[in-house]
């Protein structure tokens, strides 16, 4: 038997890495592709930093935490099951990392100015920014005083906008428990912040 003679081989379709979905990029990262991993980091960098900021309340520390989270993800990439939800896996690792780091360090959320320097023509809404920032500081402070489990449930529900079934995967608790934590947490926060809402 003879094989047909190969006359023309079409070049493989080279979809740029940035066009691949998270699962494919993780699979490539599992095979050792740092380029694929870099695309993943780029895609989710801001989200991870924001998640860390919600836990830590401080920008510089959020960036440091985020960096550590990506290192953890790289180190444990072989455990990722393609077909799973990468975002949920990412949030789970982020949450665990934040929780462990902050437990070590006892971080107190502080007021830091989120206002960028004003341009040559000052905004008439600057006072609003001040008040909004102050209200957020109060919320962060009140949040930091809640029990950890309750705080995490609130952050996952409203910060990450997860459904209860997704929260259950991240936090490893039954949905009913998480509902109760969220609702009770809201009640406590509302009482504490009544003057600022």
């Amino acid at each position: 038997m003879r094989f047909p003679r190969l006359i023309y081989q079409a070049p493989a379709q080279a979809l740029p890495l940035s066009g691949r979905d998270d699962d494919t990029l993780m699979t490539l990262a599992q095979a050792g592709s740092r380029e694929a991993f870099a695309v993943l980091v780029e895609r989710h960098a801001l989200h991870v930093v924001q998640t860390c900021f919600r836990f830590a309340g401080e920008r510089e520390q959020a960036c440091e935490l985020a960096q550590g989270i990506w290192v953890t993800i790289w180190q444990s990439r072989s455990r990722y099951q393609p077909g799973g939800n990468f975002s949920i896996w990412l949030i789970t690792i982020a949450r665990n990392r934040c929780r462990n780091e902050l437990r070590r360090q006892r971080v107190v959320a502080r007021h830091s100015s989120a206002t960028s320097p004003l341009g040559p023509e000052p905004s008439s809404g600057q006072i609003d920014s001040l008040l909004i920032e102050e209200r957020r500081r109060r919320v962060r402070e009140a949040l930091s005083q809640l029990p950890v489990a309750m705080r995490e449930a609130l952050l996952m529900r409203y910060g990450e906008e997860l459904r209860y079934d997704e929260m259950s995967k991240v936090l490893g608790a039954p949905e009913s428990t998480l509902r109760s934590r969220v609702h009770h947490g809201l009640k406590l926060l509302k009482r504490q912040l009544e003057k600022y809402l």
């Binding site: 960098a45 930093v49 924001q50 989120a114 209200r135 957020r136 919320v139 529900r157 926060l189 809402l197």
Partner: peptide, 13 residues
């Protein structure tokens, strides 16, 4: 309160 909890975080990254 819920809006504050979910408020976007203005981090220039």
């Amino acid at each position: 309160l819920v809006e504050e909890l979910g408020a976007p975080i203005g981090i220039n990254l």
